[in-house]
Write a protein that binds this DNA or RNA. Structure first.
Lengths: 325, 325
DNA sequence: GTGAAAGCGCTAACAC
DNA sequence: GTGTTAGCGCTTTCAC
């Protein structure tokens, strides 16, 4: 910058003004400075600038479980777009469901002085972020609540959705309903299981633990569990799958053996049109989840200091068809 | 930092040394400094640090078309992982296929002094990056070549793959093969179309422009085109779809009308198992594409100044079944 | 082994 | 309108 000033025959400050489009500079000087900038290939260093002026970094951080997963990719896409609308850069990192890694990545983002943080929690203790929040870094948690922290949160109505789904299966006359879920260590799975149970008592159906199978990690595991359950003498007449990877495996197994058991799934399908038969699901608006969280974060960054709020977004039962008992 | 020094009764420099884990500091002083750091909630400011020391920012930028698209989400996931292995943060932005936006985002990333750039080109002129490259910012282009720039590039063998696919259809006895593609403005589409044509002449089949339909934006448009082509008197006996969104539409339409026309698609399917019949595709390793590009970028960042190279990754014909003529 | 002083690139504050 | 000075938070250099 000093070189530019010398070449243009002006002071440092004038160069600074021109480079920052500040008003009240003689057009002639502006031209001279711009010419010098071009000749010398000068580029302003925003790091030094924000160091002195104390301006925010115009960067936010997004921590998700796994970028390649379509659910998180959708979230990342929406957040990226809203960040761009706010002239903000976006740093994305994956925790891979590892609490230690989550903590390390969040600390690193804070160290880099991001203006705000969007977090899908992996661990269940986020107390280490309290100091950061008090220091003034806004944070919004989405899809799952933070552990040990009162903070802005945007969630889906997992429990209500699962209750609705179970109710539908009961209305169709089913009494023996297999409930398939991933690890109970995951918040959303616990909520969905609770919701499914909520619907049983009002219908006068006892809760039978033999019909609940957790720890199902993927489609093939789901297919095996379904196969096994259907081979039992008191086989379920319907299945409630608590996420779409499990649903996929159930479809394949039911289709493979030509079973007429009913199936209802949590999470919608992109390719629902290709499924061998109409599938009723509990759907929700992933984009709206991300939008609500990102908008809330930017309101905080703009200075909104009101009490932390928790937003719960509705789910919707999309009835495409369901085998009766 | 000055406060910490005062509280610990040492100099600024000693605090600096402790904070940076520099050797040759008395354990006693280390403890005093650490205590002061904890009490005052001090956090080192890496911006100021790198300003003085001129160290790299430990950040790379990734520019893709659209984060939510599974192809780019897969790339982003691999790049994020390799960035993490190199203790580097990742900034992701979407060009949405808009050259102006691409230029704006790349400029912004350069301004922020990223250590390197991974770019899926949207526009066809990247000469504006030449100054940046000469200034020492490494860049690797992937999936499509940069325009007007000699630079590191990692591509897929689109042309060879399409040639293989077309050859397979010809071997199955088809002579009237409908070729369906998205906009010819996209590099990969042009390459794939060229490859498809490459296979015709050796088989003695003339190139019939009425069998080629471009500008197909999505599944429903593809379904309409297929419907229309099948209604003609000289209907194709086979279709070659040049991307998977088009393939999806073709499947739906063929399935809807119970047509026995053959179909071969470029791009593999996640849910190939759910498609109503076995589908032969030209597949490739998206993760390997991203891995090769990211590894090359980090080698450049580490100082590799050898001549720019272009890597072309092979495609593979995955034969799952194909209707004969 | 530790400290004092200079300076990274830029901008706030104020003088002219 | 423009220039001068000081200083953002840290690290470098070099003296002790």
């Amino acid at each position: 910058m000093a070189d530019v000033a010398a070449r243009a025959g002006v002071s440092l400050k004038t160069v600074s003004r021109v480079v920052n489009n500040a008003p009240h500079v003689q057009p002639e000087l502006v031209e001279r400075v711009l010419a010098a900038v071009a000749e010398l290939g000068f580029r302003r260093n925003p790091q030094a600038s924000s160091l002195r002026s104390g301006q925010p970094s115009a960067t936010i951080g997004l921590l998700i479980e796994e970028i390649a997963n379509p659910f998180y990719a959708t979230i990342a896409g929406v957040v990226a777009e809203i960040a761009r609308q706010n002239d903000t850069m976006l740093i994305i990192a994956s925790s891979e469901e590892d609490p230690d890694r989550e903590q390390q990545l969040l600390r690193e983002m804070c160290t880099r002085r991001v203006d705000g943080l969007l977090v899908v929690p992996a661990g269940d203790d986020h107390a280490f972020l309290r100091a950061e929040i008090e220091l003034g870094t806004p944070m919004v948690f989405l899809d799952r609540p933070a552990g040990g922290l009162i903070a802005d949160t945007v969630l889906l109505d997992n429990r209500g959705g699962a209750r609705d789904g179970m109710r539908r299966l009961l209305e169709a006359g089913h009494r023996r309903i297999g409930i398939l879920l991933d690890s109970l260590g995951v918040y959303t799975m616990r909520e969905r299981l609770d919701g499914a149970q909520d619907a049983l008592a009002p219908a006068g159906v006892p809760y039978d633990t033999r019909l609940v199978r957790d720890g199902i990690r993927g489609p093939s595991a789901a297919a095996r569990v379904v196969s096994e359950m259907l081979d039992r003498p008191d086989a379920p007449t319907a299945f409630f799958s608590l996420n779409n990877r499990i649903t996929l495996g159930v479809i394949e197994e039911l289709h493979r053996r030509g079973s007429d058991a009913a199936l209802l799934g949590f999470d919608d399908f992109d390719m629902a049109g290709l499924v061998p038969y109409p599938l009723t699901v509990i759907a929700y608006d992933t984009r709206e989840l991300a939008r609500a969280a990102a908008e809330l974060l930017f309101r905080r960054i703009e200075g909104d200091r009101s009490w932390p709020r928790t937003v719960v977004l509705p789910t919707e039962l999309v009835a495409r068809g369901l085998a009766p008992r």
